[in-house]
Amino acid sequence: MALMRTMAALLLLVIAFGAAAGGIELREFDDPVMEKRYHDLTASMRCPLCENQAINDSDAPISADMRERVYQLLQEGQSDIEIINHMVQRFGEYILYNPRLESRTYLLWGLPIALVLLGAMVVVLMIRARRNASAKALSAEERQRIDALTNRKRSS
């Protein structure tokens, strides 16, 4: 039991050091809003080198450079859009996890909406068709056949 406890403590220690060596810097912010913006911005940009990590999650040197630049620009008082433009100008649209709405991405953003509209149209058409079918009156012959099949006796 004591051995287990020591091993667990050692494991925790190793994990803690591993996280500390992960290279994500601690930064000082005077303003909690700015800190939140920093976290949101670095979470919304993809590392150009590692391809599926956000820059706040990546050890690549370029990610560290980009985090540093985001921090600098925030300190200079630039807006989120200005900072995003600054990065896209250098590293391309590729780094945005949320591509911007422009002629090249109309299909990307428009397709889901178009599909929902199409689905709604199909549902409306189906409901209408069903309603029309049930509203159709039965002929006398059909009614007799139904009565016979269901063993029903009509009073009228």
Binding site: P48, L49, A60, I62, D65, R69, R90, F91, G92
Partner: peptide
């Protein structure tokens, strides 16, 4: 390098 978008 950063302004050139160099990442490696």
């Amino acid at each position: 390098g950063f302004d050139l978008g160099v990442y490696g």
